[in-house]
Design a protein around this nucleic acid. Structure first.
Length: 422
RNA sequence: GGGGAGAUCGCAUAGUUGGUCUAGUGCGGCCGCCUGCUAAGCGGUUACAGGGGCCUUAAACCUCUGUCGAGGGUUCGAAUCCCUCUCUCCCCGCCA
């Protein structure tokens, strides 16, 4: 969420930013509602000051009849105040609803473009693997090896569900444990095991609500929501807190399953495990001082790339253009691994700076100096990495002519030294 | 699920016959003084948000309003009285 005063004072800049996103934000309505709100506040607050003064006088009065007269007058003032309070609340509610619909401002360095076709490749690591046989897509590898079972997943849970079996399940678990260890031991993150179910205010804090309601699983009985990403609980880890500046940046990493009920278009990513209603992810998250956030973003991307490098899988980093930028983010890098079987670059991580957009919603601040007023922190998030797609990349890059799959070196200690899945 | 207790300015607490509570005190924090250094001591200060004023802007400053878990009610006036909700703790039940 953008600050109301910021919008008021930087109208042109905000309108320009929305244009770069190609987003029709209700800025005009926000300004109009804010004018209305301030007009009401001025009136009601001066009436309240008057009432408080009168109450002080009544308390001090000896003359009862004069007091009664004053009270009678204040009764009318009280009614007017009540009416204005109701009106103000209605305007503020509307204003707040509009504010929640406004996306973040793209950073000046973000390439301008309409959609993902105009994203810019920043760098590529490694050569896309050339196999001396016809590479299979992972769904064929998985089914032949009996490690991915689509049919039974659908039987139990419906379309877009699958199950992993044997060394397939083990491979995913190994990746999770290895990635967590890497980020904790070498990149300075603290591991968090968060709840997988959260209250509505957490979704609002992470800016999943109100905009992405349709994509979320919601339990109506208890009015709780299943997390679509660990970013949600992590954003709310310090909800309402004022952090100590010396403790920043705070870097967290969490493994969670992710639940998304998006109605997926038929024919798009329907094959394999690339896109499902449930998937696992290791997520990195940072709370930083404003002046550090862009530097921390670069480190975040590098941490994600390090996973790819150690798996020795070719990948590239893409700068997401203004038109493709996520709702909450000012700047995003996607990390994509090459998957020779399906012949595409797979998005395995998306690393973003949200600046104070989420911090404002979740009310997470820090004190720059011991005496300074609290300011919003900047928050960043990045996958480190998304599991099913990393599994895809491993299966397709490490497949062999005989249909077996080599286990990447770094994962073997996590796989009981199994070298080959066959 | 049943029963009981509680929620106050970073922490700990005072405040419940409604009116100098513009919420007191202690600890902690900050500023200053003192002192070879440190500690102690002394004095001051110390919540958050919003509106208005001042100003080229911001900070600072002045002023007003709101916030004593949340929402609502009674009243000229609510931390204080009434209702609803949330959360925490304890006991019982159930449970991996």
């Amino acid at each position: 969420m953008l600050g109301l005063r910021f919008i008021r004072d930087n109208l042109e800049l905000v309108n320009d930013a929305m244009a770069r996103r190609g987003f029709a934000a209700p800025i005009g309505e926000i300004v109009r509602l804010d004018d209305e709100r301030r007009r009401l506040l001025q009136e009601v607050e001066s009436l309240k000051a008057k009432r408080n003064e009168a109450s002080r006088q009544i308390a001090a009065m000896k003359d009862r009849s004069a007091a009664e007269a004053l009270k009678a007058g204040m009764r009318r003032v009280g009614e007017r105040i009540k009416a204005l309070d109701v009106e103000t609340a209605a305007v503020e509610e509307k204003l707040n609803a509009r504010l929640l619909e406004v996306p973040n401002l793209p950073h000046a360095s973000v390439p301008i473009g309409k959609d993902e076709r105009e994203n810019v490749v920043a760098r590529t690591w490694g050569q896309p693997r050339k196999l001396d046989f016809e590479p299979l897509p992972h769904w064929e590898i998985g089914e032949r090896l009996g490690i991915i079972d689509f049919e039974r997943g659908v039987k139990m849970s419906g379309t877009r569900f699958y199950l992993l079996r044997g060394l397939g399940a083990r491979l995913q678990r190994a990746l999770i444990a290895w990635m967590l260890d890497l980020h904790v031991n070498e990149h300075g993150y603290q591991e968090i095991y968060p709840p997988f179910v959260v209250k509505e205010e957490c979704l609002v804090g992470a800016a999943q609500l109100p905009k992405f309601r349709d994509n979320l699983y919601h339990d109506v009985e208890d009015d709780v929501w299943m997390v679509p990403t660990a970013e949600v609980p992590l954003t709310n880890l310090h909800r309402g807190e004022i952090l100590d500046a010396t403790a920043l940046p705070r870097c967290y990493v969490a493994y969670t399953p992710c639940f998304r009920r998006e109605k997926m278009s038929a024919g798009r990513d329907v094959r394999g495990i690339k896109r499902g209603h449930q998937f696992d992810k290791v997520e990195m998250y940072k709370f930083t001082r404003p002046q550090d956030s862009y530097h921390e973003l670069e480190k975040l991307v590098d941490n994600a790339e390090e996973v790819c490098r150690r798996l020795e899988i070719a990948h590239r980093v893409v700068e997401v253009c203004t038109g493709d930028l996520g709702f909450s983010t000012t700047k995003t890098y996607d990390v994509e691994m090459w998957a020779p079987g399906c012949g595409e670059w797979l998005e395995v991580s998306s690393c973003s700076n949200c600046e104070e957009f989420q911090a404002r919603r979740a009310n997470t601040r820090y004190r720059p100096t011991p005496t300074a007023r609290p300011e919003f922190v900047h928050t960043l998030n990045g996958s480190g990495l998304a599991l099913p797609r990393t599994v895809i990349a491993v299966l397709e890059n490490y497949q062999q002519a005989d249909g077996s799959v080599l286990v990447p070196e770094v994962l073997r200690p996590y796989m009981g030294d199994v070298r080959v899945i066959r």
